[in-house]
């Protein structure tokens, strides 16, 4: 009951802030941009012109799975930025503006306060991601060849875990810092640091959440649910759980005002 009240308020807020409109739109755009421009590159070059006489262009044929990876690459860079910016003010902003002072004196459980906000953000992210990848999948089938529906579902599910991890990082840092800007910075720095560390110690960190896209690609190419993908998914889920519990513990111990 209390959780539903908190969750409904978040949904209403995201609706009135137009997040339900712009987040899906931006993610769809990011997902289809690269596959489509790559496909039409020869036409674009022809129309723009300016190439020296006799220049030869060899544009490699793109496999459907490679086109899908282009979508994921865009989502992993700009997409992460978008969902971080979209969510950075959720708790930090309320603490900064002072409205948290009114809410936290109500007899509510802090865990509900955190998870209601977290869930509302996850819902936007999952719906937007599903729309974005489905659109991309539609164009890939149209332009590059067949990619099965199961491949789409697998991509949405495992990539969704990675986005969920990012949102959870935002929630975690929101409990630590009251400045939305700092929250965004901490989150972005953490994801960058994770991918650097993962590529440096690749052998030992096969199941790092940063490797999610790579494992998804292998799974689609090999047409089986690889152990690496499953384990990466599991590790990501565990990290999400740890971060949420950690956020709640910090929230209880730390004074949320001043």
């Amino acid at each position: 009951m209390e959780w539903i009240t908190l969750f409904n308020k978040e949904m209403l807020e995201h609706w009135r802030n137009f997040k339900w409109i712009w987040v899906p739109l931006v993610l769809i755009l990011l997902a289809i941009m690269d596959p489509i421009t790559t496909y039409y590159l020869p036409v674009i070059l022809e129309n723009v012109g300016g190439l020296p006489e006799g220049a030869m262009f060899e544009i490699p044929e793109l496999l459907p799975v490679e086109a899908l990876m282009m979508s994921l690459a865009q989502l992993s860079s700009l997409g992460v930025l978008v969902i971080v910016l979209m969510s950075m003010g959720t708790i930090a902003g309320e603490r900064k503006s002072g409205v948290a002072e009114l809410i936290l004196v109500k007899p509510i459980r802090y865990l509900n306060y955190i998870t209601a906000k977290w869930s509302a953000l996850l819902l936007i992210v999952w719906v937007s991601l599903t729309l974005a990848l489905s659109t991309s999948w539609y164009y890939i089938n149209l332009l590059f060849g067949e990619l099965s529906f199961t491949d789409l579902l697998l991509t949405i599910f495992f990539y969704g875990l990675w986005f969920s991890f990012v949102i959870t990082l935002v929630i975690f840092f929101s409990v630590i810092s009251r400045s939305p800007g700092l929250v965004a910075a901490f989150t972005i720095i953490t994801t960058i640091a994770m991918s650097i560390i993962t590529s440096l110690f690749g052998k030992h960190l096969t199941w790092s959440p940063s490797n999610m896209s790579g494992h998804i690609e292998y799974a689609i190419v090999s047409q089986e649910l690889t152990k690496d993908l499953m384990m990466t998914g599991l590790i990501t889920l565990i990290l999400i759980g740890i971060l949420i519990v950690g956020a709640q513990q910090i929230f209880i111990r730390k004074e949320q005002i001043n």
């Binding site: 209390e2 009240t5 308020k9 503006s97 409205v99 002072e101 009114l102 809410i103 109500k106 509510i108």
Partner: peptide, 27 residues
Amino acid sequence: GYLPQFPAFYPWMTGREFLIYSGKLSK
């Protein structure tokens, strides 16, 4: 019941919505 020195609200809510929200949170 507590009213802080500089109360801040959700600017996108109406007064009635905020009051109902507060009431629900107070069970």
